[in-house]
């Protein structure tokens, strides 16, 4: 077993919280412009205004990705086979 100090910085167990911190920091930065910037809704005439609400693309991106991961997980129950399935 390699000691923690010999590992690349990226793999040290002490780095993990830092990596998460950096990520959260970037996410917060990405949301800052929402306070000054006003988005124009794409479908005003259709009565759809949700895409101009605060941080729309942020939560929409997060939720749609979560939905896709879960959808894949569920479909995987039925579709996944051992990777030697076709080999015989």
């Amino acid at each position: 077993m390699i000691s923690d100090q010999d590992k690349h910085w990226f793999y040290r167990s002490s780095s993990l919280p830092k990596l998460w911190m950096i990520q959260v920091f970037i996410l917060v930065i990405a949301l800052v412009p929402e306070f000054v910037l006003h988005h124009h809704p794409h479908f005003q005439e259709n009565g759809v205004l949700v895409d101009a609400t605060f941080g729309f693309t942020a939560w929409y991106g997060f939720l749609s990705c979560a939905a896709m991961v879960i959808a894949a997980k569920i479909l995987g129950i039925f579709l996944k086979r051992k990777d030697s399935y076709y080999d015989e």
């Binding site: 991106g61 997060f62 749609s64 996944k80 051992k82």
Partner: peptide, 27 residues
Amino acid sequence: QFQLLLFAGFAFFVMLPLMKRTLTISL
């Protein structure tokens, strides 16, 4: 665009345990 992608990336790392690689193919 930055928000969309960064939060998609966030979803990836939050849900990483659900995406553990397995020795499988899909039908």
